[in-house]
Structure formats: structure tokens, C-alpha cells
Design a protein around this nucleic acid. Structure first.
Lengths: 154, 154
DNA sequence: ACCAGTTGGTTGACGTGTCACCCACCCTAG
DNA sequence: CTAGGGTGGGTGACACGTCAACCAACTGGT
């Protein structure tokens, strides 16, 4: 049929399938837990975490780059979070287009409450499954893939 | 503050952050590629792949369990795919509630066209980044996490 | 001073995933 | 045969992510 089929060999297939399955189940479980016991989505969590980590007040685009999202995604997200009272927007005097994103007291409270619970789930579902060597190995592999991705087009 | 902070140590944190970043970027890139050059979403891809692999005709719930999805998700997905002509639904004579999901000719054609491209992207973005030992190592780690998840509550 | 290009940020449409709830049909105990 | 529970499957509302287009404000060069 195809001049260059190049299917994966069994070991490669096993690695890919296993990774995909693991990642789906792990992320799925974790985000459902986060949502269930902190009434925050994973997206809320990471945005608030990075924001408060940086002092609770940031320019929109800086925040967007910090979490490595597309600006449109962040814009929608911030709008939703503002609606829920987790953050608010302020105008930027230096740049007429600009906006500051500010964590509200409710937002700070929410993340401070959610953070330990989140860490506990990460530990329980992921860290505890693996030895330190396995964790190191996974970190190395992840960085290799990340470095590879940066070199690849698209 | 907290009686049991138990934050992650630096190595654990590095492993978790690296994994999360890698997984997000990799999955993101791959699904955008799939969508861009086959006009199918990753969800379409996996459903059609599993379905045709099983002969192109399956009971709804069997398919749902095969891909390990929630039934509601599959229901929505199948509805969308039916709207796009990739699959169709048939009644089940044996069980009045039941439904068969059938891959249409267009669906078969779509997956046969998409599959090699998909594999090529997986290879280019992921497999090629790693040695065979690293792939094996990742497969082992994934299976450990999966096994651990099954033992954990929630 | 002006205009072209870039940057900061928003918007709307659309596909997707989840949750909660629903309904219809099947099955088994009594 | 019938009530009650389980199973097969659908639905509607909502949160989320992407894409493409858009607008306003800031550059820089001429």
C-alpha cells in the first residue's frame, strides 16, 4: 500500500501505548481530584499558583508566557476566573493596551488551601508509585523529549 | 502553617514538572498535527482505529470499554462522528436498548489515510527522541504508575 | 509627522470532556 | 407475573482549548 509504512516495532509500540495510557489516566484522575476537593479546575490551579508565586500581580502577557499558554487561552481563562472572583484585571498606565492580572484575596485563599491537597495527590498517585531512580530516569527522559521537540519543526 | 506540609523534594519536583511539561507539549503538538493534516481529531482517530481494528462494527459499550472512556463521552463523540459521516449507528435486534457502531466507507478511508501519517508523527516527535533503553525504561515506569493507580482509591 | 508592522489583548464560533440526570429495556427474586 | 435493580445508552448544561479574525495602542523608519 504505502511506500514507507515504517510501523513501530513492538517495543516502541509498547512504550508509546503505555505512556499514553498512563498519562491519560494519571492526568484524568488528578484533575478530577483537584476539581472535586478544591472546587478549582487544574487550569485555575496553575494560573493562581504561578501568579501568587510571582507576587500576585503580573502583566497579562508575562503570565501567559510563564505558564506557556496561548494568549487566547489565557484570556478566556482569566475572564472565567474573574467571573468567579479569583482574580481581577487592572489597567496598565504605562501601556494603554496592557492589563495587570491580580490575585484577589479569595484567589490567594483558594490556592493556599488547594496547594497542599494538590501536592498530596501528586505524591499519592505518582511519586509513591516510583523509586527515586525511576523519577530521575523519567525526568531525564522528559527533558530529552522536550529538547527534541524544540529542535523539530512545528 | 500546615501540620503536614510534605512538599516534594527538588528531585521529585523536577521529575513531576518535567513530566507534566513534556506530556503537555508532546500531546499538544501531536494532536494539532493530526488535526491539521488529516482533518480528524485525535478522538476520531482512536475511535476509528479501535473500531476498524475490531472489524468495523461493534456494540457501543464494547467500544467504550475498549478505549476506556466514559459512556457519555463516547456517546457525544459518536454523535459528532456520525454527523460527519465517519460512523453510523444501527439498532441491535438482540437487545432493544443496544446500538451497533459501524465504520462507514468514508470512515475506513479516513483512518487508512491518517494512520501512516499519525505513526510518522509519533516517530518523529517521540520515538526518535529516545534510545531503545529509554523507551523500555519509560514503558516500565508507565506500567508501574498504571498498576499503582489501580490499587489507589478514586 | 506619518504610516507599516508589531505587540497586547479580546472575541466568537466550534469541537470537546464532564457531570448529573434521564429513559428504556433487561433480569432476577419472590 | 411483577417489582426493583442493573445495564445500555442519550441529553443538556457547562467548563475548557483552539482557531481565526479583530482592534487598539505602541513602535520604528523615512
Amino acid at each position: 500500500m504505502n511506500a514507507t509504512p515504517r510501523w513501530l516495532n513492538p517495543e516502541q509500540q509498547a512504550a508509546w501505548d503505555g505512556f499514553i495510557r498512563m498519562q491519560e489516566k494519571l492526568i484524568g484522575r488528578l484533575s478530577r481530584r483537584v476539581q472535586a476537593d478544591s472546587r478549582m479546575s487544574p487550569a485555575d490551579y496553575i494560573v493562581l499558583a504561578k501568579l501568587t508565586e510571582a507576587g500576585g500581580r503580573m502583566r497579562f502577557m508575562d503570565l501567559t508566557k510563564l505558564v506557556e499558554w496561548e494568549k487566547s487561552r489565557m484570556s478566556h481563562q482569566v475572564a472565567r476566573m474573574a467571573k468567579r472572583g479569583l482574580v481581577s484585571k487592572e489597567e496598565c498606565p504605562d501601556d494603554g493596551r496592557g492589563a495587570f492580572i491580580v490575585a484577589t484575596p479569595a484567589g490567594r485563599e483558594a490556592i493556599e488551601e488547594a496547594a497542599p491537597v494538590h501536592v498530596e495527590h501528586v505524591r499519592r498517585l505518582f511519586i509513591d508509585a516510583l523509586t527515586q531512580e525511576e523519577l530521575d530516569s523519567l525526568a531525564r527522559i522528559s527533558n530529552r523529549v522536550l529538547a527534541h521537540l524544540e529542535k523539530q519543526p512545528d
